[in-house]
Design a protein around this nucleic acid. Structure first.
Lengths: 241, 241
DNA sequence: CGCCCTTTTGAAGAAAATCAAGGGCAGTGG
DNA sequence: CCACTGCCCTTGATTTTCTTCAAAAGGGCG
């Protein structure tokens, strides 16, 4: 069960041994296609499987009482979810396919066995969760300033797309609407549009529906008060920050 | 090494067996006193120990480039931290004592051994982390409305204090300033004050420095769009939401 | 072509930040 | 004992930011 992007992700997370990689590839899973806008993990119940995104983009989200939506995390190919299933916990949020997706569903028992037999896999799960959490903290951190929050979001998505090798010549797919981006940043779609206009006219990014190219990574990071440390906190850094 | 509040917390998280509880009590740890406003886990490096709050309040926080602070999580007696140490990861944030605290430092190796020998302890760590993450999502959800966010925060803190048995006759200690509360809610101290005034004049809470009593839990929950599901997602609920 | 979805822009209004100043209370020291 | 100081709470006035409401323009597709 290859799913190259997942293997890439795991290698980014830990030193996956040959034995470990073999065990991951040997997992039973069934891949299904999810159409755009459909939830594949719903709220209030424990998910039935552990899921890995094979292709497409998904998002964690909650609906407010006024009907508005807040996206609390993006999931790219190689990303996985379903820890709630492992801990027999009900979801406090749902996960929706933002684009048409292929997702691999893996039985919980297989994941549990893998955690016991391949220690670095358990470590990978922990690290991935710590990164998820760090991203949430970063989102909270910049949530008070729309320009900063948007710049930060573009930096983060661009970096994650690069890490997942989803970019080609510096251009990465960003198959989401401005409204969806706003739902994640915490601002309205209208305001997202205005903020993106600033970033474009300042020639910091080349953005249009479907793709993103960061033109001035230095400037964009500065505006977004962003750096990539929190995405791989386990890697030794020689740089002084 | 009792630390009753930690045992209580673990029992809230999982069905801790007698053997498991004995193993937890047998842990080696050294308790130290942290004076108010001092960091006991700093940013950019992996913590040296796994920590359990014995008494006092602590908080996870980040500093923005303009010098302002965002609190991204409160820690009450019984709460623990240090997963970054277990995964050999650098912290993306720091943890500060909001009041004078006693914290128990437990060597990482002891925690790792406990995870191997007491399966429900490992599960407890996972569940606690899922709750931390759910809290962050909730904070993000309500971050656009100060009244809602503040009401929600008071609901959450009150519920957590109750769960940790820190309340007496419905009054729980809340030993933090309005500015600290604002740092957590994501608004200025001045605005926090105005919002609290509303909640007080509406007679929803009895709040003053040091203590909180929720007078109208129903109303407060409604304003804060809050319910306690995300705090214990593993417990079967018969209620229909 | 016409429809739907998305983007874009304008104008008015609401929410929160900022700036500024005063007040209460506890601890400190003359 | 009382002035002084520091910290926190409180309130008012002004300004900035973002939302809301509204409308029009672009683009892909049956």
């Amino acid at each position: 069960m290859p799913h190259a992007s997942w293997i890439t992700k795991l290698h980014n997370l830990v030193d996956l041994t040959v034995k470990g990689e073999r065990a991951v590839r040997a997992l039973n899973s069934s891949v299904s296609s999810i159409t755009r806008h459909r939830d594949f993990i719903s709220r209030l119940k424990a998910p039935d499987y552990f899921y890995v995104i094979v292709s497409g983009w998904a998002a964690r989200y909650c609906i407010r009482s006024d009907g508005s939506r807040r996206i609390t995390g993006f999931m790219l190919p190689g990303d996985f979810c379903g820890i709630h299933a492992v801990t027999h916990s009900a979801m406090d949020h749902a996960i929706v396919a933002l684009t048409n997706c292929e997702v691999a569903a893996i039985p919980i028992a297989e994941i549990e066995a893998l955690c016991s037999n391949v220690p670095e896999f358990a470590l990978a799960l922990w690290r991935a969760k710590l990164v998820d959490e760090a991203m949430l903290r970063q989102w909270l951190l910049s949530s008070s300033d729309a320009l900063q929050a948007t710049a930060r979001m573009l930096c983060e998505l661009s970096a994650r797309a690069k890490a997942a090798r989803l970019d080609v010549d510096g251009i990465c797919a960003l198959p989401i609407t401005q409204e969806q981006l706003g739902d994640a940043v915490g601002i309205t779609g209208v305001h997202t549009n205005r903020v993106l206009k600033i970033l474009r006219t300042e020639e910091l990014v080349d953005y249009a529906f479907g793709h993103l190219r960061v033109l001035r990574a230095d400037k964009l990071s500065e505006i977004g008060q962003w750096n990539d440390r929190y995405l791989t906190p386990w890697s030794a850094r020689t740089k002084i920050y």
